[in-house]
Write a protein that binds this DNA or RNA. Structure first.
Length: 617
DNA sequence: GCCGTTTTCGGCCCGACTGTTTTCAGTCG
């Protein structure tokens, strides 16, 4: 795992990390009562693979249905088990009566007769082998049976050995090149960090784009895929180029100096591997079709499938080349992406919304939200200065004055200092109060055009009490609360804990509410509808933490919160002044959660914000 | 197996690339 702090990337300092590979920690697939969404998704994909082996005798759309169901479960904002308990599994798009009943059986009894019978005669190893790029169900099955690799334990390792011994190339339909491809795949999967955090993916793309820009025939260059949609994590880095010389553009790309090897090279696309076993893909086209290409490769897959379904009903067929009128077979090309959408009778849909969660219907009715932008932000509501408040957590590295000056350059009107509370074990109540008073005084002495608030980020203890006495809470301009311990409490206990914490006086923001650290720590379990209700009632705001490893609230919950009428704040959680530049990653999350300017508190002017603060319950 | 602006039955996105093939299968996005 790569872990680098304070990496300088052009205009901003970012902290980034690669995420541990889930493939390194191969979990054996077992059906049990408390299956997580990830495990269920894996199970449903295994069922799809099993069905695939039946070939022509199997309805291929049944296979696709299982794959879609797997995606649907994986992208849920709450645990499937909880949805089941509420009797709402079939309300999930992609889950019908049949799959819902099989999942129900699993949650009830820890077993599934149906799924077990589908996979009964198949070697468990094949489901491990399908995790290798280039190995689908059929090859996995062939390899597993012919090479007599049956157990899922060490399946990949055993395949590697067989390939080395030349036993793979003897199999029908697999030659030397297939053997080589398998060996490379294994090597890459072993060393692969699964998905990249957004800033790191942006940095890779930035460097490749700089290289491509030197070819004057490359007229337009954009990122594609999840990177363009600003997803929290990115798999492969995809780039589009509009050029007057397709071949020349691909040539330049495959000669990228910082590559490990060229993975593939066609007449319209090429892929390279860069150090870290990261794949970068290039798609080239002429200028006339650039809009269509951008649309196609921005995805998401689900958005495109839904869009094609929508087009088909109008007698149109979509591809990266343009829109084809089915009856006349006439292709219309698009230079600009918004013309592509217009041709379908839709508003241009911002990439962040392209996940097939209602954006096509909204675009049709011209009801897409006017998404928040970085320039709307007038404040950063979570910053840690170097004021020594004697906390057991980390303190900041920049002074209050430096931070205020930085806020001025960002054009902010106000900011909040939200250092962690003084350690509870090292101080008695009087000492905690004294430290808060001293901090208050320090804040009051800052000379800046920017209004500075004296707040704190206070621990929610395991029982839901706060680590600062009530008298201390009232000395602050406002209180932010968050969980920094006992993340594993069950849903009921955690919900009670959070609701108790939110009931203390002067609590205004629940910061990084899920506590997740992408690739390192799962979200806490919480009854979100209940928490939303309390927040709305007590006018407490939920933070979207812009730290790229947190991005918390996640975008799905952002959308749920907005629907529930809850207001949100953005905070960088900066521990050094340059960290305040990370606000853009919070904006990305907010946009993916369909947030408008009105939904985010710190788009308000200082006077409006003051009013909101003072309308305490 | 899922789902409904043509539908409770009959559809279900579309094309590129590779390898092992002589016209296609498998995989990917």
């Amino acid at each position: 795992m790569l872990f680098i702090h304070s990496y300088y990337c052009n205009v901003t300092i970012i902290t980034y990390t690669c995420i541990e590979s889930s493939l390194c920690i191969i979990k054996l697939m077992k059906i049990h009562k408390k299956m997580s969404n990830m495990e269920i998704a894996e199970l449903l994909r295994a069922v799809a693979s099993a069905l695939q082996l039946k070939g022509a005798s199997e309805n291929k759309f049944r296979i696709i249905a299982y794959q879609r169901a797997a995606d649907a479960i994986e992208h849920l904002s709450s645990e499937a088990k909880d949805v089941y308990d509420e009797g709402k599994l079939t309300e999930i798009a992609g889950i019908g009566e049949s799959i819902a009943s099989h999942l129900g059986e699993i949650f009830k009894s820890g077993k599934s007769k149906h799924f077990s019978s589908i996979m009964k005669d198949l070697p468990p190893s094949m489901f491990e082998l399908t995790k290798l790029p280039g190995i689908g169900a059929k090859r996995a099955h062939k390899l597993a049976t012919e090479l007599k690799i049956t157990s899922d334990k060490n399946a990949i390792k055993r395949l590697e050995k067989a390939a080395k011994q030349g036993r793979v190339s003897h199999l029908e339909g697999m030659g030397e090149l297939t053997t080589e491809a398998i060996q490379k795949s294994i090597k890459e999967v072993k060393g692969r960090t699964n998905r990249l955090l957004l800033p790191y993916a942006e940095k890779i793309a930035f460097e490749v784009i700089e290289w491509l820009k030197k070819d004057k025939n490359n007229k337009r260059i954009d990122v594609l895929g999840s990177l363009r949609r600003k997803a929290a994590t990115v798999g492969d880095v995809d780039i589009a180029v509009a050029t007057t010389d397709l071949k020349g553009s691909l040539d330049r790309f495959t000669k990228y100096p910082n590559k490990s090897r060229v993975l593939e090279r066609g007449s319209r696309t090429a892929s390279i591997i860069i150090p870290g076993n990261r794949q970068v893909d290039l798609m080239v086209t002429d200028l006339d079709s650039y809009g269509s290409l951008l649309q196609h490769f921005t995805g998401s897959k689900h958005h495109n499938i839904a869009l094609r379904d929508f087009a088909k009903k109008k007698g149109l067929s979509l591809s990266e080349y343009g829109i084809n009128k089915t009856d006349t077979n006439k292709l219309t090309k698009f230079k600009k992406e918004d013309d592509f959408y217009k041709h379908l009778g839709l508003e241009w849909i911002p990439p962040e919304l392209r996940e097939d969660t209602g954006e096509i219907e909204a675009a049709k009715e011209s009801k897409l939200p006017k998404l928040i932008q970085l320039k709307d932000i007038k404040s950063d509501l979570q910053i840690h200065s170097d004021f020594d408040i004697e906390t057991s957590h980390d303190i900041g590295e920049s002074s209050m004055l430096e931070i205020a000056q930085k806020a001025e350059t960002l054009g902010y009107e106000y900011i909040a200092f939200t250092e962690h509370n003084p350690s509870k074990s090292g101080h008695n109540e009087a000492q905690i109060i004294d430290l808060i008073k001293r901090k208050k005084e320090a804040v009051s002495k800052i000379k800046s055009k920017v209004k500075t608030y004296n707040a704190l980020e206070i621990d929610i203890l395991p029982d839901g009490s706060l680590s600062v006495p009530e008298k201390g809470l009232l000395l602050l301009d406002f209180v932010t609360v968050s969980i920094h311990s006992s993340f594993k409490q069950d849903r009921e206990k955690m919900t009670k804990r959070v609701i108790r914490a939110l009931s203390y006086p002067n609590v205004k923001i629940f910061t990084h509410p899920t506590g997740r650290k992408i690739g390192h720590r799962e979200s806490i379990e919480l009854n979100w509808p209940e928490v939303f209700e309390i927040c709305k009632k007590k006018d407490i705001w939920l933070e979207i933490n812009a730290d790229s490893m947190r991005l918390d609230l996640p975008s799905l919950l952002v959308r749920d919160a907005i629907k529930a009428g809850v207001k949100l704040t953005l905070g960088t959680d900066a521990h050094y002044k340059a960290g305040m530049d990370n606000m853009i990653y919070g904006i990305d999350v907010a946009r993916r959660g369909w947030a408008t300017k009105a939904d985010i508190v710190n788009t308000r002017s200082l006077s409006e914000f003051e009013k909101m603060l003072n309308s305490k319950q």
